[in-house]
Design a binder for these strands. Structure first.
Lengths: 143, 143
DNA sequence: GTTACTGCAAAGATTTTGCACCTAT
DNA sequence: ATAGGTGCAAAATCTTTGCAGTAAC
């Protein structure tokens, strides 16, 4: 079992909950993908792999994964929520292509620093943030 | 009529569309508020003022306002879209309080600069962006 | 007399929830 | 036994759309 899956198992069990096969399937699906996933994609991949987890359980497990801190819920300006696992994935922001939908990631430590500064000035206690830049990716600009 | 309402009227008429009383009402409502509005709030305010514009027309007019460039659609991580008018309102980002829901604005020109830089590095042609910081405002931290 | 606009109610889409049944301790 | 989990279908929420009637040019 992957390290992350094990961490999720620990989280679940420490909370006195059960690490069911359904929860394991959803977790493995999320941890095995390096793309941005949404509930529907997770469900479809599970179905393709022959795993029969219901939509409700996918949603419920995604919430647990977020609670555990192993997965982040991100909002890319679309109508459905996306998720990405965090392990080996330092915090980053997103470049969202409005034409092809591709999402690139970028990192800019100085931006993070300036955000902290802005929060201090406003006496605001930050717990997280989301920075999306919308526009056109290299491919789509060329056309 | 407010300058912004007149600009919207021009935009509408240049497109060969009609500047109806309904469109005017919605525009005035949006331009007169300095808060973040959503479709439902606009509808309610209009009702309170005795204006009977349908929900569908509110949505349709908000789209037009965004198209006109006078209003920005912003996504504060909630389930409904928020809108704010742009005039006299330089670009800014948002501090969203997870407890009381208050949204404060802040500006940090250097962040904008760094974003441009990040886009250049990725050969990405940006058209807009959204930066939300989530956490707890001064009031809510105190408690 | 077209073309465009509105309102209504229905449809869409995503996510949540109530409930009956099942499973682990 | 008891607490928790799952699946299903219904509900909830926000937004869009089809259509019939109305108004503007």
């Amino acid at each position: 079992m992957k390290t992350e899956t094990l961490q999720f198992k620990s989280y679940i069990e420490e909370k006195g909950l059960l690490f069911t096969p359904e929860r394991q399937s959803v977790a493995e699906e999320v941890f095995s993908s390096h793309d941005h996933l949404d509930a529907e994609k997770v469900l479809k991949s599970l179905r393709v792999r022959g795993s029969k987890v219901s939509r409700a359980t996918v949603y419920r497990t995604l919430d647990l994964l977020v609670e555990s801190g192993l997965v982040e819920k991100i909002d890319l300006g679309e109508d459905r929520a996306a998720y990405e696992h965090i392990a080996g994935h330092p915090h980053h922001d997103h470049l969202v292509c409005l034409r092809c939908g591709k999402v690139q990631e970028f990192e800019e430590p100085l931006i993070e620093q300036l955000q902290e500064w802005a929060c201090e000035k406003a006496s605001f206690k930050a717990t997280g943030h989301s920075l999306n830049i919308y526009g056109y990716c290299e491919n789509c600009t060329a056309k």
